[in-house]
Each structure stands twice: as C-alpha cells, then as structure tokens.
Write a protein that binds this DNA or RNA. Sequence first.
DNA 1: TTCTAAACTGGAATGGTTCTGAAATGAAAA
DNA 2: TTTTCATTTCAGAACCATTCCAGTTTAGAA
Lengths: 144, 144
Amino acid sequence: MKIMKKEDLIGQLREKGLKITPQRLAIIDALVENRTRHPGATLIYNEAKKKAKRVSLSTVYATLKELSASGLIKAMEFDRMENRYDANLSEHLNLICKRCGAIVDFNLPATIEQKDITRKTGFVVTDTRMEYYGYCGDCLKRPE
Amino acid sequence: MKIMKKEDLIGQLREKGLKITPQRLAIIDALVENRTRHPGATLIYNEAKKKAKRVSLSTVYATLKELSASGLIKAMEFDRMENRYDANLSEHLNLICKRCGAIVDFNLPATIEQKDITRKTGFVVTDTRMEYYGYCGDCLKRPE
DNA sequence: TTCTAAACTGGAATGGTTCTGAAATGAAAA
DNA sequence: TTTTCATTTCAGAACCATTCCAGTTTAGAA
C-alpha cells in the first residue's frame, strides 16, 4: 500500500469504468492536496467548490463513499465529529489531538502479524484502525 | 489497566461522590455481564430494564458517557452504527466483523512504545484505538 | 450528434446521541 | 426519622453528519 496521488486515484476510477467528472476531479484534488490534514467532508466540499463550478455536498459524500468502498482512500469514522479521510494507505498510526482535532501520521515501527490472528481466531483481517488519542505538542504549549 | 468488575465500577462511582442509584447499578450489571459482547446502548438499555423497574434510554446514555469520561470503561465510536462499550481496559485489539458486527478481543503480543512517539513528535498519548476489521470465522462459514 | 446509464443536485429523511426543563430521589444533616 | 437539596432521572424535542430521493444533467460510447 502507498500514498495515493491524483493520477493513481483517477486511473483507478477509469479502471473501474467510473466516469471522470469535474466534480470527482475537484474532490480528488482537494483530498490529495490536503492529505496531511486528513480532511473531512466539509473541508473537501469547500476546497472542491474552488475548482469546479458546481459541486454539491451530496456528491462529495457519494464520492468519498465510493472511493473508500473501493479501498482507494481510508475513512476514519467518528461519532459526533465529522468523519475524516486519508489518502495514505500505508499502515500507520494516526495521532489525534483531543483538543484541536489535528490528525498527524506516525509510521509504525513494526506490524502485528495478521496471520497469527487468523490462525488463532479464524478471523480474517481486511483492514485496520489504529489511533492514538492525546494532545499534540502545539496544544500542550497553548494555555487551556 | 485491567478488566473492570462490578465492584470496581461501583467503588469508583462512590469515590467520585456520585450517587449509587438503581439505574446505575442495572447499567453496570448489564455492562459487566455482557462485556465480551462489547454491548451498545440499546442492548444495555434492554438488559438494564430487566434489573431495574424504571430506566430510560437517556439515563443509559448519560451513565455510559459518565463512565467513559471518567475512564472507567472505553467507548468505541462508530459513525452509522451504535457506539459500543468495553469494560476491558487492558491494551488489546478489537476484531470487528464487518458482516455481523461481532467484536472479539485479541491480546496484543507487544505494545508500541508511547515514549518514542512523544520523543519524536511531542504528542502525548492518553488513550488508544486499535481495531482490526474483517470477517469472523462464523461469518466466513455462512453463505452470503 | 445521438443516446442512455451513470452522476449530480437540493431538499427531505434518518437515526444514534445529546439537550432540556420539570419531577423524582439518594444520602447527608438535623 | 424527617428534612433538605443537589444530583439524577425522565420523556420528548433537538441536533447534525450522513444518506436517501426523485428529478435533471452529463460523460462517453456508438
């Protein structure tokens, strides 16, 4: 797995027989250009509006759903907080600041053997979610 | 950290100066007795109703929020799916079946050093979320 | 250029969770 | 035991990110 670039995503859409629309291009642009921010639907919507004349929030949601269902991006689901999206498919930890909501990637030093899990439990792993919550350096410096 | 038992939870409530009510006792019972199922609010509500004469869903939510805010149980948040609660505070993986929603604990063979993260990024870890998604043995045997 | 399945749109619906304000109650004090 | 009152509980309304819907537009093949 890798960090998805614009061309990767467009290529994959084409390969799946999906249409390349101005909306989809704008959404992919917004996703890739803001990758390190792990953007949510609203941010992607606002960024995409700058690139394509017409984009609706419904389309942003539909496209994000399509992309993550196809495994081209990773959805990070939250409860009372907007879901966030990640074009970095390499196995890594997301450090999520509980105060400001910032999400930063942290590469894992070693991976847990998924084979072992299947052997012991019969459970077949298709995707993982590993998140560490706490406070980022910036927030720790800031007064409450 | 450990697997919380009924007495642990009640003791902690008392220590925090919170009142021991029939509703809270029933909710704690439901939580502990169904721990391995990683119950959601609805299941806890239904189980609690069997123990206490009167319990409302609002109270279940309020109590679960109280308990997880105090770090006595762990909330697992989802987007379009009920949040689930875990009285097992030891660091472990949750294997989540994408078909039936079953959640099974899997003890981690080794932990990632949280000190290293702070040293490298300044981020201070307070709690973690590690979930592996896929299909459980039972679902793999069942026809689609 | 024509044609049609796929994609887009705005608004309504959804559903788990939180909020609200009034009524009930645990438990400390009298 | 009774009083007292901050805490807790309750039912229903509100919330809000996300999904659904039905009508309109459009990408791309023929």
